[in-house]
């Protein structure tokens, strides 16, 4: 049941026939796991908080650094040195006190991933490295919950939504390990990709629209082009072939 304050706060999106009060109540009852409070995680968590998703668990083990501030918009100059999740939690709680924001400053690992995501409706991939992305992809498949992938580099980004057992997963396209490196990026790129991921999350939670499944959306901000690549499940995929 939505309160009078919530009806007012979310009035403009409740006006949308695809959402309405029923959709807003679905958002309110939802529990979303966000892996990462950086360039992607900041706008994702801001927009899901603003939209009224009831419960967010945000996990990130880093502290805020000055070099983060060109893109990680949940963190401000005075936050340098603080834990990212605490910095994000403070802003998000002020943005929308109706939303429960859990801030966990831990490293996602093989040992804790399953326990961290247990009880959540979906996983949002806002990580900055491939090994943890694959770990989360595997964990999403184990828990049979959707996985919302996004990644960026420079002016480029990509997004894809994984429905375990039904659509291609991140590992379906795996060729082998890729060396890690410090990636260049300007804040507008993760903002674009994060908003696509948040859009997908909202659509999934409300049960509307067509998801970005079996489709990899590639964005190039330099020439402002979106390219959609079709992808398919890999029958030999070591993460999802058994489903």
């Amino acid at each position: 049941m939505l309160t009078a304050e919530e009806l007012d706060r979310y009035g403009r999106q409740i006006l949308m026939p695809q959402i309405g009060e029923e959709g807003q109540e679905k958002l309110k009852k939802s529990r979303v796991f966000i892996a990462g409070a950086g360039g992607l995680g900041s706008p994702i968590s801001i927009y899901l908080t603003a939209a009224g998703v009831g419960h967010l668990r945000i996990v990130d083990h880093d502290n805020v650094e000055l070099t983060n501030l060109n893109r990680q918009v949940a963190h401000w100059t005075a936050d340098v040195g603080r834990r990212k999740v605490e910095s994000a939690q403070e802003k998000l709680s002020k943005l929308n006190p109706n939303v429960t924001i859990e801030a966990l400053s831990v490293t996602i690992s093989e040992e804790n991933a399953s326990g961290l995501v247990a009880g959540f409706d979906l996983i949002v991939d806002a990580m900055d490295n491939l090994p943890t992305r694959y770990l989360l992809n595997k964990t999403a498949i184990e828990h049979r919950v959707p996985f919302f992938h996004g990644a960026v580099n420079g002016f480029e980004g990509r997004a894809m939504t994984v429905i375990p057992g039904k659509t291609a997963c991140l590992r379906c396209l795996y060729r082998g390990p890729v060396p890690e490196s410090k990636f260049p990026v300007i804040g507008v790129t993760p903002a674009v990709i994060a908003c696509i991921q948040a859009t997908e999350v909202i659509k999934y939670l409300v049960g509307i629209g067509d998801l970005l499944s079996n489709r990899l959306l590639a964005y190039n901000g330099l020439n402002l082009k979106f390219t959609e690549f079709k992808v398919q499940r890999n029958p030999q995929c070591e993460h999802c072939a058994h489903l």
């Binding site: 360039g39 990636f183 390219t227 690549f229």
Partner: peptide, 10 residues
């Protein structure tokens, strides 16, 4: 043919 590169940044 499109030759693209995997992205990992976030």
């Amino acid at each position: 043919i499109h030759v693209t590169m995997m992205l990992a940044g976030g």
